[in-house]
Design a protein around this nucleic acid. Sequence first.
DNA 1: CGCTACCTTGATTTCGGTCAAGATACGTGG
DNA 2: CCACGTATCTTGACCGAAATCAAGGTAGCG
Lengths: 250, 250
Amino acid sequence: MKEQKNYAVSCQACSLNTLCIPHSLTDEEIDIVDTLVKRKNPIQRNRLVFERGDKFLSLYAVRAGAVKTYSVDQEGNESVIGFYLPGEMFGMDAIYSGKHPNTAMAVENAYVCEIPYNRLEELSGEIQNLQSHMFRTLSGVISSDQQLQVLLGKKTAEERFANFVLSLSNRYQKRRLSPTLFRLPMSRADIANYLGITPETVSRVIHRLQVSEILLLDGNDVQILDLHRLCQSAHGGIKAGMSKTTISAH
Amino acid sequence: MKEQKNYAVSCQACSLNTLCIPHSLTDEEIDIVDTLVKRKNPIQRNRLVFERGDKFLSLYAVRAGAVKTYSVDQEGNESVIGFYLPGEMFGMDAIYSGKHPNTAMAVENAYVCEIPYNRLEELSGEIQNLQSHMFRTLSGVISSDQQLQVLLGKKTAEERFANFVLSLSNRYQKRRLSPTLFRLPMSRADIANYLGITPETVSRVIHRLQVSEILLLDGNDVQILDLHRLCQSAHGGIKAGMSKTTISAH
DNA sequence: CGCTACCTTGATTTCGGTCAAGATACGTGG
DNA sequence: CCACGTATCTTGACCGAAATCAAGGTAGCG
């Protein structure tokens, strides 16, 4: 339905996208970095990229399809940690302990790149720009995790879902895909789990947003009809916003 | 009440603690890193270390006291992002954009160190071990943010609070302080906000845990009476754990 | 000593969870 | 290409944990 066809990205495009390298590296430096990136065979839906406890050897980046990471507690409950779309990197949480603390699974058939970490670390020592870039990337993950933290701690089901759709929209836009018309690559259950709500609630929220003509869902295809009101929904909606916990600053 | 008196840590101890440098640096390297660390004047309770939007120049580490970071949404609601105890670093979320995305406030009178980031970045380029260490540190923040994400998405008020107390306990223990007897440096309101619940609920949870003789609270002084049962409370309590969302893997 | 900020406790409400059917879509094999 | 079985999604009725609302109580500070 959507233009899902720029799968066959060039190798250079891959490192440019996945490492999100800004304009700060020379062409020569980019070529060196490119030699690091290994493509992997296609990964079937529901197959693992790595599993909790696996030795950490590489960072990964999605080239096509979509990947989720999740943890499993002692009772076997799955907690979805994140979704990764083409051009996005994952596995950075494993640097700390040298083992992957979470499992990564393809939520739809996917291609991923592998970036051997020891080589990346070496190169970062040699190419100052690459080091800076890695610091920024890791910091960016921290920033967005913190925003998610606020989402999960303070927001209603509707706000969570609206924010989620907006996040996907932004991420697709960054990749030059339509920000208003795209596919949800993951199941309702995964979305619900990620947002800390139930699939039933996701369904009901979607229902409401469709009735309000804010968005349209046909299976997993979303169309955002009213971006403005979707943003409102994402930030407390029309419910006469007034401060609850005002700052305790002096 | 507790042994809160190893305030006057040596400068070397400061870099060792705050940067959490493992045994991987030589003494000479440690000395070099130490020259970076600047002490700051004491910061009064409720005074800011930096504010949202401030240019990012340095990372910070708590030397004594405690600091919280928080964001404020359009309606003026505060969201506490994290608490930082002596020996812990904060401000890493600002590397990404070059501006502090959140505000940092002393929750009690505090001393902090400042680590100029441009110098740290330069040194990381020269000292491979330092670079590795920075990568690990940033990754560690990502890991613990992800655990918090699960906490906020899936856990009950009691589990959240129990986990919070255990986290403090572990962090104090790491600093050679008692893991069973310590002070909560922040208000109930801040704890509640951080955990995504209300102060009333925090009060009620504390009440229950005291009745069960799991812990004892006198003002802000906590004593953990039954670590084992506190861990149980933190992980679903006695409520006959059985799997809800079993993994959808193949 | 009195004020203010913080904490606790109780009564009531509510959002979202749980349970239980159905409906729809999907992959597989005949 | 169609029929069947399984997954997933939706919808409804009911329930419960925690939020909200509303007093009080306590403690630290000028």
